[in-house]
Design a protein around this nucleic acid. Structure first.
Ligand SMILES: NC(=O)c1ccc[n+]([C@@H]2O[C@H](COP(=O)([O-])OP(=O)(O)OC[C@H]3O[C@@H](n4cnc5c(N)ncnc54)[C@H](O)[C@@H]3O)[C@@H](O)[C@H]2O)c1
Ligand SMILES: NC(=O)c1ccc[n+]([C@@H]2O[C@H](COP(=O)([O-])OP(=O)(O)OC[C@H]3O[C@@H](n4cnc5c(N)ncnc54)[C@H](O)[C@@H]3O)[C@@H](O)[C@H]2O)c1
Lengths: 220, 220
DNA sequence: AGGCGCTTGTGCACACTTTCACAAAGCCGT
DNA sequence: ACGGCTTTGTGAAAGTGTGCACAAGCGCCT
């Protein structure tokens, strides 16, 4: 489930705060979801709760980590050492959460050799060697959109089986490769959509008119 | 629908490439989804296709933009001028897609006054004034996790009604405020989950054993 | 030891999403 | 002008996910 990482984060926070036990109700409130959903999700891991009491926070953290494959570190390799690649590499939160940067590659000669966040930028031709030497399974694409497919192909060829794509482009990969895309513009457009609807709703209220399903009148 | 931005991007790309007409089948292939789904989604905008021919790309782009509220620019305000805030502000892609940065605020005195991407960093106390002067509806949280709730409260108090949160924390907002969260760690953990499953599958195959539902044996 | 209150785990119904399948509708060649 | 080919738009079916409601189970207090 895609919600397990969220529970993991919440539980980790609670654990840090000294909470040793938590009920599905509390966890649901923290996460802003339904308590029954929390229980269903957690029951997927097995029956690790105690009726009348709740869940042991530490044990649950461990179980979720096991399920998510977070029992060991996963090195990641970043393709593209531009603004974003540098920000990601320099950002400590990556490694803190079990995903240390195992390498950065680029095509631009002027980027190669520079050191960001303790990692030296290397040429993309060395990708396969980097991936294999550290047994890296996850690649991050931080190149411009048009180069994203090339980057993905290079990653797959090097042996990476999971890709996180920040470029605004849809990449095609062979079957069996997991790809996730993070697109800022999409997020903003979804927010803009809600704003748009809010604005339309205000308009309709103000006009006191029969609310027609089609809101015409783009200007003014 | 959350897929409209994706179609918009695909269609824009096709339009740039000189394609004036596209069928639901083609669009579905590009987006990696089912053709019927594409048609259902697009029919939500109205009947803008021509049977036997397909959709006019330019017209469809316009219609989706109208639906998403992208007929005008939405200024955004960024809270937190650290690594990420600076990368976002300096990144041109924001403005290119209709979301120019209308302001950046921070609490740290040493950040205030510096200029990033043509925008001067100002104190968070000026947030309300910035938001109101430019009629800003969208705020971006780029502060550390523990400060995210404060940032959200400040944004809401200033009059922002949509929030994009990059901090690894869940923020609570009053009803009527849209919040979206982008969490790198969550994305990576989902990829790691798939890697984990792949590893388990390999193990099971190698052992030629009856595939038991519980994979024990964490060590070795 | 037994009862009482609390919380889990889950069967079931409902709502929403996805996919199939096909009639209606347009274009083009003859 | 008409028939055949293509593609849309949409009803209906199949599939997923969500939430309610409650029995089963556990701890604690008496
Ligand atoms: N900067 C941001 O805040 C931000 C935010 C969201 C999304 N993005 C997206 O992330 C991507 C990178 O953004 P950026 O600001 O870092 O861009 P950038 O131009 O600063 O960096 C791109 C880097 O990729 C390298 N590159 C180009 N082609 C390559 C290839 N084929 N193989 C390997 N490396 C290659 C370039 O040499 C450059 O160093 C873009 O697609 C952008 O849309 C950026
Ligand atoms: N850097 C990255 O690549 C990256 C990637 C993903 C997520 N993130 C997340 O984004 C957030 C910011 O990351 P960063 O690397 O820019 O951190 P940072 O420490 O560089 O920047 C944080 C900024 O927020 C400011 N700040 C602190 N409290 C504030 C408050 N109450 N109001 C306003 N501003 C406040 C600080 O002064 C600082 O300038 C973090 O939560 C981080 O987890 C960062």
């Amino acid at each position: 489930m895609a919600r397990l990482p969220v529970y993991l984060q919440l539980l980790s926070e609670q654990f840090e705060a000294g909470i040793t036990n938590i009920s599905s109700e509390e966890l649901a409130t923290l996460g802003g979801v339904n308590a029954a959903k929390v229980r269903k999700d957690l029951s997927y891991l097995g029956s690790y709760g105690t009726r009348g009491v709740g869940y042991d926070v530490e044990f649950l953290v461990f179980q979720i980590k096991r399920e998510l494959g977070l029992t060991h570190e996963w090195h990641v390799v970043i393709v593209g050492a531009g603004n974003l690649g540098q920000a990601l590499s320099g950002y400590g939160g990556f490694g803190e959460r079990g995903f240390p940067v195992g390498g950065i590659v680029d095509v631009a000669e002027d980027k190669i050799g520079s050191v960001i966040g303790g990692v030296r930028v290397r040429h993309i031709d060395e990708l396969a060697q980097i991936v294999q030497s550290r047994d890296i399974a996850i690649g991050v694409i931080a190149t411009p959109g048009p180069a994203a497919q090339d980057a993905a192909d290079a990653l797959v060829a090097a042996g990476v089986t999971s890709v996180l794509n920040f470029a605004p482009a849809i990449v095609n990969t062979p079957h069996g490769i997991s790809v996730r895309k993070v697109d800022l513009a999409v997020e903003l457009q979804i927010l803009s959509y809600h704003e748009q609807r809010r604005a339309n709703a205000r308009q309709a209220t103000k006009l006191q008119a029969v609310p027609g399903p089609r809101g015409r009148g783009a200007s003014a």
